Amino acid sequence: MTIWRRRSWMAIIAAVFALTFVLAGCGKSDNNQNNGGQPPETQGGQQNEQTETGSNETSGGEEKQYYVVMVTDVGGVNDNSFNQSAWEGLQQFESEYGAKVDYLQSQSDADYVPNLNQFVKNGADLTWGIGFLMGDAVKQVADQNPDAKLAIIDQVVDAPNVASVTFKEHEGSYLVGVVAGLMTKTNKIGFVGGMEIPVIKRFEAGFTAGVKAVNPDANVIINYTGAFDAPDQGKAAAATLYNDGADIIFHAAGATGDGVFNEGIERKKAGGDVWVIGVDKDQSITFGHDITLTSMMKRVDQAVVQVSADLVNGRFQPGLTELGLAENGVGLPENNPNVPEDVLKQVDEYAQKIVSGEIVVPSE
């Protein structure tokens, strides 16, 4: 059994709700209309409170409906990547716990604080900020609202009411680098990043190290677009890399990566022998197996589920949680029909060495 298939708490939840994700598809479900940050109606017209024991019942015996929400970064909730994965996690949490969930999309960084405040002021039990760029905003809102509970993905916020979740993206990226290094036919491999920030640099560093570990002769060509919400820029970046001879491109660029896939699909239809490696989710679900070589799964969805569930169960824990290969927080999808078994075997061998500490993957 491969390392990314370990039955950790994240993998177990993922298995139980895999069908839910397939049925949910992309975007927002019909029964989860964004209501502008307004809280759900409380039973009996009163705000319910969690008891000291963590029970879901109020002092009057009524069951509390939790209100857990998220604010996206500029990539938007339908980015086929990071924000969408977080939203799918909240939908899974809603299904399991009967909670009310909602989101607000940020059109620019100026929206972060107002969007977070809107949810906090309207009584959200837990408010998520999705993404590294929201760190300062989450810190500001947390400090101004010490009784509120907040959580953030990909950034560490030092506040007594904030749970921070980060990932070892470099470990999972190393593994898809192994795939690319073993499968390239041109010895030219591309990487398209969004903004050049620490989290994306971890993707780049791990990917490059994985390629070089199995194919020292390969050249990894780096291209940062400076945006997570610009598919046109992603398409242009991919065109440049393919024109330079790259036959495989790995992107870590949010919705900008949609353009990378679009360029790859066009070239594939024209007879080109090119591939794209997806990020955050199994992007073959969106873009198909004809162009998706594999994906670097980053289980943002399961992190959102677990922290939100901890709140319901009275175990909300501020502070940092870091998830890597050992915790099944990153890795390849369960199914990789375009990757030969001998390559997958080598991927698993490298994964075991990373988990054991024999290989320490660079993060920058």
Rank of each mutant, 00 (worst) to 15 (best):
I153F: 05
F167G: 10
I153P: 04
F167R: 12
L182K: 15
K185S: 14
H170P: 02
M183Y: 13
L182G: 13
D154A: 01
Y174S: 02
M183T: 10
S164V: 06
E171G: 04
A180T: 13
A151W: 03
P160H: 11
L175K: 10
D158F: 05
N187H: 14
Q155I: 10
G181I: 04
I189P: 00
L182P: 12
P160T: 08
G177L: 11
L175M: 11
L182T: 09
D154F: 05
A180Q: 06
V165L: 14
K188N: 13
E169V: 06
I153Q: 13
A159R: 15
L182N: 12
N161M: 06
N161D: 07
V156N: 10
G172S: 05
V176Y: 01
V165D: 04
V176N: 05
F167V: 09
I153G: 04
V162H: 04
T166K: 07
E171S: 06
N161G: 14
V157F: 07
Q155S: 13
D158C: 04
A159G: 15
V178E: 04
M183C: 13
T184G: 08
G177N: 07
E169R: 01
V176R: 07
G177T: 11
L182S: 15
S173Q: 07
S173A: 12
E169M: 03
A163P: 05
